[in-house]
């Protein structure tokens, strides 16, 4: 991927949640980058319009859930005369295959991008078992 390619507009993907929602409004799937190094798993999630207080990262039973609400107060004042995108909730779930050190999870939100670092649990040092021969 070259650095200077032209960006194309992509329509936000709206998701139909499995359970019925109690709150009205659209739910979108944020775009993510996921990469892994030897000792951690990192997720970069595009969530424009979401403030740190409205972002929820939840990890239980190896299911990572990301929820973020774009504040409607960020919408511009006045009467809408032209629209190409909508705002609402971002929601995405991942099933993790690695064991994560839950207490060391680091989440940073800057310019509408969430950077979530999930450190892996250090593997137990391999033990070599000597087979005794009688």
């Amino acid at each position: 991927m070259s650095e200077t390619n032209e960006l194309k507009v992509r329509e936000k993907q709206e998701v139909a949640p499995s359970a019925e929602l109690t709150k009205p409004g659209p739910v979108f799937t944020p775009h993510v980058d996921i990469f892994e190094t030897d000792n951690s798993l990192t997720l970069l999630v595009d969530m424009p319009g979401v403030k740190a207080d409205d972002l929820n990262v939840d990890l239980r039973d190896d299911i990572l859930t990301l929820t973020g609400d774009a504040k409607p107060s960020l919408a511009t004042p006045g009467e809408k005369i032209y629209g190409e995108y909508e705002t609402g909730r971002y929601y995405r779930q991942f099933s993790l295959s690695e064991v994560i050190a839950q207490d060391k999870i680091d989440a940073k939100l800057s310019d509408g991008v969430l950077r979530l670092t999930l450190p892996k649990v250090e593997k137990a040092t391999p033990r070599r078992i000597m087979v005794q021969v009688d």
């Binding site: 991927m1 200077t4 390619n5 032209e6 960006l7 992509r10 775009h31 980058d33 996921i34 990469f35």
Partner: peptide, 12 residues
Amino acid sequence: ARYHRREREAGR
């Protein structure tokens, strides 16, 4: 870093 997913795009 080994990428599993690359959905975010860079560009002008």
